[in-house]
Design a protein around this nucleic acid. Structure first.
Length: 573
RNA sequence: CGGGCCGUGGCGCAGCCUGGCUAGCGCGCUUGCUUGGGGUGCAAGAGGUCCCGGGUUCAAAUCCCGGCGGCCCGACCA
């Protein structure tokens, strides 16, 4: 295509509010334009890139026997009421009413619709297994859209669903997806890790996330450099570092002491001269309207996800100051488990076996020393804390590291949650009714592009992987008024097209600097520069990612780039 | 939902505190000339409900009240 005819509105400066590299660059490079908070228009370049990503996704899904469909984005409330998620999703779901007052919502995901299709049509075990997928616009009423396309209210997603007769079948479908996802992200040129994940509101047993480590990422993952253990922070487990100071020996009785104005762990540590790891942090959580006391070591952080799972409540949140005073008669800065009656106490496993620690006295401005778990109070022990940097890996003892990452894919073993609640049954070989078991698998299309930009950019712009770049090569005559350069560039461009390359000819009457800057910005992997050396029949090929350049004969350039591009596309195409 | 910040031509900003000519600057855009290997130079132009509503005042981009929109941190998160 000829640049002079295209709409590629590049900006010299990015909008002030954009912070994440992918956000700044996608706007600057003319890929996207904001329409409202978390809602974007995808312009020509973005659309080209998405079409390439979608094609890769489609090829790999088809390769595992998945069947593509297209389901509605607009759903009736009844479907979501059946599964119980109409309430569960709360404000995260866009809801609306039609002219007759019927309630509808915009789909955040499609378990309900897919299951509704399956229950009407699947009747025999002979029809299983099935894998159905679609590439569809999804909606989520994000409380806080941010970081450009990384967290938005409307986005593209490939979602697939598997239906199997039994758990062994589900294992097979799950594994097919895991492998397909690896091929998809490999082909898109991403560097990613697969982590164990928490299932969240989806329900289900096993789940893995595909994560691309990047500073702009929204999720935290924990990885072990030793054995390769990796997990989402919500799920990760570790052996905590030992307390900084050993506990005092002896069978000491709790003893109250005055701590005027000392409310935080840090203030109490400073006041007592003992480190946070010698304290018990007491947090009050409201679980379905009832208070529960959660205890972790002073230097640890409560994982609300793990806590919620351990208590088994549906609605879990930190208690408000007023509620705390009502139950404990003290401020949040002076709480502790000693003497607490009628309130469930959950303690992190790292507190088990400790002796003579410090905690609040449930009396403003007083703390207790010599508090020993299981002697001075009793609690249920669970793993309740977040992994900290430097904790030891449970498998190999190596040090764990926390990293920010972008979630590009997520696979779940759903179990029977939807098939059961929505009444999906088939007859098995013995003529008995059985409930199929399901899996659910998602890929964020926009996030693949974002992650690639986060991974591969520099101060000049993006350096996209060949398979997902909007164009593979740009042919740039340096001097627009030089007839010989123009016709040579035309010839090379024509040759690129013949070789099947997605080629762009920068035929704009612009200064060379402008053309070079724009090409760098929009991230075209290869540039063929037709300039002064043309007098000797030579041109220059530049690789965007590495900034390496090669001078070669005019007639060679197109096929040379074609070979590079073919190598980058691998055998997938 | 808690905390912080911001709305002035397409983009980036100044002006506001201390109200007062026709609201400025850089980039971009248009026209002409110029230049031609990293956003060329000169000249002439076009383009603004100063987020919206109300109030104070002789006078509001500027002060006051309310609303809307957006960004960042945290909480939340198929």
């Amino acid at each position: 295509m000829r640049w002079s005819h295209l709409f590629i509105p590049t900006l010299r400066e990015a909008p002030a509010e954009a912070e994440a590299p992918s956000h700044r660059l996608l706007v600057r490079a003319g890929y996207i334009r904001p329409v409202a908070a978390g809602i974007y228009s995808y312009l020509f370049l973005a659309q080209r890139s998405f079409l390439k990503i979608i094609r890769i996704v489609r090829e790999e899904m088809d390769a595992i026997g998945a069947q593509e469909m297209l389901l509605p984005a607009l759903h009736p409330a009844e479907l979501w009421q059946e599964s119980g998620r109409w309430e569960l999703m709360g404000d995260n779901m866009f809801r609306l009413k039609d002219r007759f007052g019927r309630e509808l919502c915009l789909g955040m995901t499609h378990e309900e619709v897919m299951t509704a299709i399956a229950r009407g049509e699947l009747r025999s075990y002979k029809q299983l297994p099935q894998i159905w997928y679609q590439i569809q616009t999804k909606f989520r009423d994000e409380p806080r859209p941010k970081s450009g396309l990384l967290r938005v209210r409307q986005f593209l997603m490939k979602d697939s669903y598997s239906f199997d007769l039994d758990p062994a079948g589900l294992d097979v479908s799950y594994e097919k997806h895991r492998r397909a996802y690896c091929r998809i992200f490999d082909r898109c040129g991403l560097r990613y890790i697969v982590v164990e994940a928490h299932s969240g509101a989806m329900g289900g047993s096993q789940s893995h996330e595909f994560m691309v480590p990047a500073e702009a990422g929204e999720d935290w993952v924990v990885v072990c450099s030793g054995c390769g253990y990796s997990a989402n922070l919500e799920k990760a487990v570790s052996r905590p570092s030992p307390p900084v100071v050993a506990d005092p020996d002896g069978d000491l009785a709790p003893e109250e002491f005055h701590t005027p104005g000392r409310k935080t762990i840090a203030e109490v540590a400073e006041f007592t001269g003992l480190p946070p790891s010698s304290q018990i942090k007491s947090l009050v959580m409201m679980v379905d309207g009832e208070p529960v006391l959660a205890l972790v070591r002073g230097d640890h952080t409560l994982s609300e996800t793990k806590f919620a799972e351990a208590v088994g409540g549906t609605e879990v949140r930190p208690a408000h100051g007023g509620e705390i005073r009502g139950w404990f008669g003290a401020d949040a800065g002076s709480l502790g488990p000693v003497g607490v009656r009628g309130i469930r106490i959950m303690a992190d496993a790292a507190l088990r076996g400790r002796r003579n620690m410090i905690c609040g006295a449930n009396k403003d401005d007083y703390h207790l020393r010599n508090v020993t778990p299981d002697e001075d109070f009793t609690a249920e022990y669970h793993d309740l804390r977040q992994v900290e940097d430097g904790d030891a890996c449970l498998r190999c003892g190596g040090p764990l590291e926390r990293k920010k990452a972008v979630e590009v894919g997520h696979i779940f073993k759903l179990g029977y949650k939807y098939s059961e609640s929505m009444g999906l049954r088939v007859l098995d070989a013995s003529g008995k009714e059985v409930t199929p078991i399901m899996g659910s698998y998602g890929i964020g299309i926009e996030r693949i592009l974002c992650a690639a930009v986060e991974l591969y950019h520099d101060e000049d712009g993006m350096a996209l992987p060949v398979p997902i770049a909007p164009f593979a090569v740009v042919v740039t005559p340096v001097n627009a008024s030089d007839e010989r350069q123009r016709s040579a560039a035309e010839a090379i461009y024509g040759r690129c097209l013949e070789l099947g390359l997605d080629a762009l000819l920068d035929d704009r009457d612009e200064r060379p600097g402008v053309k070079f800057k724009d090409a760098d910005l929009i991230g075209i992997p290869y540039r063929i520069t037709v300039g002064k050396k043309l007098a000797q029949g030579r041109v220059e090929v530049l690789e965007r990612r590495t900034r390496q350049s090669w001078e070669m004969a005019e007639v060679e350039a197109a096929s040379w780039v074609a070979a590079k591009v073919a190598a980058a596309l691998g055998d997938g195409r």
